[in-house]
Amino acid sequence: MSAATLSEGDWIRGISIRQPYAACILDGAKTVENRLGRWRTGWVLLHTSKTVDRPALRVPLIGRTIRDRELVTGAVVGIARIADCHQDPEGAPLCSQWALPGVWHLVLADVQELPLPVPARGQVVPWKPAPDLLERVFQQLPGFQP
């Protein structure tokens, strides 16, 4: 894909995730993001919400994962590919230690962290990034090929 088609933004969406969960995704430990609704597969910008889930910082699994990581908020911090979106059958084991019952599980793959966060506004629902935001993100990922 050329740089011209990258800037159009029709092939990628944004997903806003609270900290410290976004840091766990960037670390590679958290490969499942929980959502109330179904999402389509494909590429997403990983955006951090402006708020931090402070009680989650005391969860041992999260604490071990984010040790020494800065919890950037209000910025695009990486990209990932939603490889699958599913709900685990009722009563079945969850697909991941990060998965919650009764919600949709976005299975994340090909996570790439940006060297520098790009300040941006996000939304809870999938959002279409502006061309200038995409340009600032992909300047930091010159070898990216969707």
Results as ranks from 00 to 15, higher is better:
Arg64Val: 09
Trp98Thr: 06
Val59Gln: 13
Leu106Gly: 03
Gln87Asn: 03
Gly91Phe: 06
Leu100Trp: 08
Glu70Asn: 06
Pro129Gly: 00
Leu114Trp: 11
Gly63Pro: 04
Leu61Tyr: 05
Leu45Trp: 02
Ala80Cys: 13
Gln87Trp: 05
Gly63His: 11
His86Tyr: 14
Leu46Arg: 04
Trp104His: 05
Arg81Leu: 14
Leu116Val: 13
Gln87Pro: 01
Leu46Pro: 08
Val107Trp: 05
Glu90His: 10
Leu45Asn: 03
Arg64Lys: 14
Glu70Cys: 15
Ile66Glu: 09
His105Ile: 05
Ile62Asp: 02
Val118Trp: 01
Pro117Val: 01
Gln87Cys: 13
Val124Gly: 02
Glu70Pro: 15
Arg121Pro: 02
Gln97Val: 14
Val103Ser: 04
Val103Ile: 04
Leu106Ile: 08
Pro119Phe: 00
Gly122Ala: 00
Val107Ala: 06
Leu116Pro: 07
Ala130Gln: 10
Leu61Trp: 07
Leu133Gly: 00
Asp110Tyr: 07
Leu106Arg: 08
Pro119Ala: 01
Val118Tyr: 01
Leu100Met: 11
Glu70Leu: 09
Leu45His: 03
Thr65Gln: 03
Pro55Cys: 11
Ala99Met: 08
Pro60Gly: 10
Pro60Met: 10
Gly74Tyr: 01
Leu114Tyr: 15
Pro93Ala: 10
Arg54Ser: 13
Leu134Ile: 00
Gln97Asn: 10
Ala109Asn: 02
Ile62Ser: 08
Asp132Glu: 08
Leu61Asp: 14
Arg58Glu: 10
Leu94Met: 06
Pro93Asp: 05
Pro126Asp: 00
Arg54Cys: 14
Leu133Glu: 01
Val76His: 06
Leu45Met: 06
Val107Cys: 07
Leu94Asn: 06
Glu70Ala: 10
Glu113Leu: 12
Arg69Leu: 08
Gln123Ala: 14
Leu61Gly: 13
Thr48Ser: 10
Leu57Arg: 09
Ile62Gly: 12
Ile66Asn: 04
Gly91Arg: 09
Gly74His: 08
Ala99Ser: 06
Asp88Asn: 11
Glu113Pro: 09
Ala109Arg: 12
Ala99Trp: 07
Gly74Asn: 05
Leu71Ser: 04
Pro115His: 07
Arg67Asp: 09
Leu94Thr: 12
Leu71Asn: 06
Thr73Ile: 02
Gly102Met: 12
Val103Phe: 08
Ala99Phe: 04
Leu71Tyr: 00
Pro60Phe: 09
Ala130Asp: 11
Pro117Asp: 03
Leu108Asn: 03
Val103Leu: 13
Asp84Ile: 13
Val124Arg: 03
Ala92Asn: 02
Val118Glu: 05
Gly78Trp: 03
Val72Thr: 13
Gly74Arg: 00
Asp68Cys: 09
Arg121Met: 04
Ala99Cys: 05
Ala130Thr: 02
Pro89Thr: 05
Ile66Pro: 12
Asp110Phe: 04
His86Thr: 12
Ala92Trp: 07
Gly102Asp: 05
Arg121Ser: 08
Pro101Arg: 10
His86Glu: 14
His105Asp: 04
Leu94Ile: 06
Leu61Pro: 09
Ala83His: 08
Gly122Ser: 02
Arg58Lys: 09
His86Val: 15
Ser96Pro: 03
